[in-house]
């Protein structure tokens, strides 16, 4: 038997009223795989991440994480919508970094990183702080641990947000356009950190990005979304080098033109 995929979307649909954002999505992500999601705005790519993080409910289908349903639970042999306890148990495997950082503004970098480990995982403060110090060091911010978010640059804030997510020891990391809100000169430092944790940690990563260069160099697979469906996917060399689909070609052409 082959190994369970880390994440599996099975016929997942998402609608807002009459607008279908995602149309019967089927997607499997293997353990340790780095997958980039690209596509025009409104193509549903961010929705994929938000559903996996349970920030959005789904209308149809099932999302599986390590062979267990995230959105549903088994009851008397049938799948029923999951209750909160079930969702929280599965959700613990997933971490997310947001486009707008979403750091807690009233807490220092360190406090941001120990809040969830202490209250959710029940870690002792000393242990949580030691772990957070390591992670802040990893993202190059050990000097800034007592700074508040408003005292940090955008790039620094985003690196704290990455450390905060890692502090929960997730198996899956979601990156939602994490460099889109940054000034151009700050993008590099954040991508560098993502590269590094990709190398050093055994993480499954799913990222929505507009950085085509980074997607090409970093990911194992790239998915191109168009109008709520995966229009084309494949290794970055193929998808960027020789896109098969006309839509993909148009999109890449337009993006490269702008870049």
């Amino acid at each position: 038997m082959t190994e369970q995929p880390m994440v599996r979307f099975e016929n997942v649909s998402k609608r807002y009223g009459t607008l279908t954002v995602l149309d019967e999505l089927n997607l499997e992500i293997a353990r340790g795989e780095k997958v980039s999601v690209i596509g025009p705005s409104g193509s549903g790519k961010t929705t994929v991440l938000r559903m996996l993080m349970t920030l959005e409910t789904i209308n149809d289908g099932v999302i599986w994480v390590e062979g267990e349903p995230l959105t549903h639970m088994k009851k008397n042999g049938k799948l029923v919508p999951a209750d909160l306890a079930h969702i929280r148990r599965i959700r613990a495997k997933i971490g997310m970094v947001f486009q707008s950082f979403n750091l807690f503004p009233h807490m220092t970098a360190m406090a941001n990183c120990i809040e969830a480990p202490m209250t959710v995982l029940g870690m002792k403060r000393a242990e949580a702080e030691a772990r957070a110090a390591e992670l802040l060091d990893l993202v190059g911010l050990s000097q800034k641990k007592d700074h508040y978010p408003s005292q940090l640059s955008g790039g620094q804030q985003q690196r704290v947000a990455i450390a905060r997510a890692l502090a929960m020891r997730p198996k899956i990391m979601l990156f939602d356009e994490v460099t889109s809100a940054l000034d151009p000169e700050l993008v590099g430092e954040v991508l560098q950190v993502i590269r590094q944790i990709g190398r050093e940690h055994d993480l499954t990563m799913l990222m929505v990005t507009h950085q085509m260069g980074f997607a090409k160099e970093f990911s194992d697979r790239v998915c191109f979304f168009y109008q709520g469906k995966i229009c084309e996917q494949g290794p970055p060399g193929e998808l960027f080098g020789a896109p098969k689909n006309e839509r993909t070609r148009q999109f890449l052409h337009a993006v490269l033109e702008a870049g």
Binding site: M53, T54, L55, R88, R91, A92, I94, G95, M96, F98, S100, F101, N102, L103, F104, E115, A116, T119, V120, R164, A165, M168
Partner: peptide, 23 residues
């Protein structure tokens, strides 16, 4: 409160009680 604060709390798996009390 910005919606992102609630979303970050969900992403960190904070309980509803902790989210209110701390965030």
């Amino acid at each position: 409160i910005h919606r992102g604060q609630w979303e970050a709390s969900i992403a960190l798996n904070l309980s509803a009680w902790t989210t209110f009390r701390d965030i």
